Simulated assay, not measured.
Amino acid sequence: MGLDIELVIESSDSDSFSSPSGIAYFSPPRDTDTFIALAGMWEKPCFIPARGFPDPASSMAVAHYGRVIVDTVEDADGWGTATISRELANECLESKRSHALDYTGEWISAPQYAYPGWLRLHELKSALEFSGIETSHLSTDFQLAMDVMKSIEMRGGFSRMVFWFDY
């Protein structure tokens, strides 16, 4: 039960994440409790409400979360990522199913994605604890994502988890 969680682990040399690098993409199995811990839903609180998609974000996060707006099918060739027609993009922006992304070219969030946010490792741990979720009960994918974050920070870098949900 729940929505599919998608996430990218980013690293940065600075706490400001002015030039984040995408390190790994994960798509853990559906898990309602983790979903609620990250974003809060169905009148259940979470430790830190979803903050929206970060700006700036790594090219990896943008490529997984976004769609390139194209005028014609021929324009879609060569992007190497998912595209969306200008007509559908305009509809999605108007209905607020998508939002514009600041990146090279014209990008919007994929219309099937919702509740984007980001958490640093200490915030993620607090969010899970607040929701009563033990790390050992998380999926292997989610545990690996946290391990990547720990590894980045053990080496003196900064890490964050950028997440969103696919419905």
Rank of each mutant, 00 (worst) to 15 (best):
L3D: 05
L3W: 11
D4E: 07
D4I: 11
I5K: 02
E6L: 05
V8R: 04
V8D: 01
E10L: 02
E10M: 06
S11N: 07
D13G: 13
S19G: 14
P20W: 13
P20Y: 15
S21D: 06
G22M: 06
I23E: 10
A24R: 11
Y25I: 07
Y25H: 12
F26K: 07
P29H: 07
D31W: 12
T32I: 14
T32Y: 15
L38E: 01
G40R: 11
G40D: 05
C46G: 10
I48Y: 08
A50V: 06
F53M: 02
F53H: 00
P54C: 12
P54R: 15
P56I: 04
Y65A: 07
R67I: 03
I69D: 00
D71V: 03
T72M: 03
V73A: 04
V73P: 00
D75M: 01
D75T: 00
G80K: 15
T81S: 13
I84L: 12
L88P: 03
L88I: 12
N90P: 05
N90I: 07
E91A: 10
C92A: 14
C92P: 00
E94T: 13
S95P: 02
S95W: 03
K96T: 14
K96G: 09
R97I: 09
S98Y: 01
L101I: 14
L101E: 01
D102Y: 10
G105V: 08
G105C: 07
G105K: 09
G105N: 09
E106T: 09
S109A: 11
Y113W: 13
Y113V: 10
A114V: 09
L119K: 05
L119D: 01
L119C: 05
L121R: 10
L121M: 05
S126Q: 15
A127H: 04
L128E: 00
L128H: 01
F130G: 10
S131C: 14
G132P: 08
I133K: 06
I133T: 04
H137N: 06
H137M: 11
S139G: 05
Q143F: 08
A145V: 05
I152V: 12
I152Y: 08
E153F: 09
F158G: 01
S159F: 03
V162R: 06
D166G: 05
Y167W: 15
